[in-house]
Design a protein around this nucleic acid. Sequence first.
DNA 1: ATAGTTACTGACTCACAGGTCAGTAACGGA
DNA 2: TCCGTTACTGACCTGTGAGTCAGTAACTAT
Lengths: 206, 206
Amino acid sequence: MAEPRFQRRKEDRPAEITQAALEAFAEKGYAATKVDDVAKRAGVSKGLLYLYFKTKEDLFKAVIRSIVSPRIDALINNIEETDLSAEEFLRGPFLTFAKSIPKSPVRILIRLMIAEGPKHPDLVKWYWDNVVSRATKALRSLFDKGVENGEFRESALNEFPHLLVTPVFFSTIFTIVFKQQMTLDTDRFIEAHVDMVLGSIKAEAE
Amino acid sequence: MAEPRFQRRKEDRPAEITQAALEAFAEKGYAATKVDDVAKRAGVSKGLLYLYFKTKEDLFKAVIRSIVSPRIDALINNIEETDLSAEEFLRGPFLTFAKSIPKSPVRILIRLMIAEGPKHPDLVKWYWDNVVSRATKALRSLFDKGVENGEFRESALNEFPHLLVTPVFFSTIFTIVFKQQMTLDTDRFIEAHVDMVLGSIKAEAE
DNA sequence: ATAGTTACTGACTCACAGGTCAGTAACGGA
DNA sequence: TCCGTTACTGACCTGTGAGTCAGTAACTAT
């Protein structure tokens, strides 16, 4: 009695395929990844992949969405529901999150968005609405709250909350591009920036 | 007497072709740009292009090098030979340079390095040696000079001069990826960051 | 003029990868 | 155990674009 050559697993296939695709894209980038390789990695034929995803581009979008959504939701809930002071939150949960990015698989997505974004305007739109806007808003409310309760002075961070996260992007890209020659300690780099920001916005005792 | 169908211009061809390639890559990215299109843009046949550049990859590398070199040389000479104080230099020539990046054609190269870098390790090595290392060193010496002459206190910027330029990368990428939905005022964004940095490292009068 | 040199052309080749589809076999129900 | 359904396979088709090369015409030297 021979082993069955394959199993029917309709429910699990999409997740298995997007996971395989993420790994493949991470290694080679989008253009250089063959659909056939993704299929092999997922233990599936190319034909099946095309039953679940209409085109390679469709697969790409599914990968981004499936990885990004849960993470960004978690961060934003975290900001909204914390009972820490603004400074405690920034030095605690935020810093932990920020330091993890350059080391986690998510960093790949940042590269993919930069590299492939211009070819997929609707994906960029989705990313803007679901990630950038929401994260910006959450951060801004954090700084506003800090000002309201007297922790912080009014500063450029209220207008440009992005100023907080610039070193996260910088070290992520650095890590990806210069992984051979890198000696940058991304943890201390990001910490130093957060120190500087807090130092410049904390209300002086007066 | 008919016009000649073409002219022989051995000297000028390489520069014309790399210029055309930069424009094409800027519009479509590397993978999506056809060698034939680059040739057409340069007013040249595909065959001629292959006389000057062995492969498409070779052309890509030539584009990066030819655009980057003169700019980085200018900046570094500027730092080394200025007779401004460190703060004056940062608020003057450096800020002008920094603000120009997200708007200039060079921003394309940043995207190309991120997107294609991993496939061209020798190009990344060249970029590290000729751009990143030299720029880092020049900036570090600027902060060191500031400390020596009592303008600045010793700070994280002496160890991580990169902290100065993070918003330049951030706004460049933002501009490229989110050009449709962008409302970020990159000039004021970068200025606000430089203000913050200077505010946090200036020696207090004591 | 004319012959020699070489910058230049563009039709061609060919490998490759996205996408298709006719057939196959796993599974569920009777 | 057989039949119907459909998840799944993989050989095939096809457009595309990188790279080639035999031929052509612009220039040069005599």
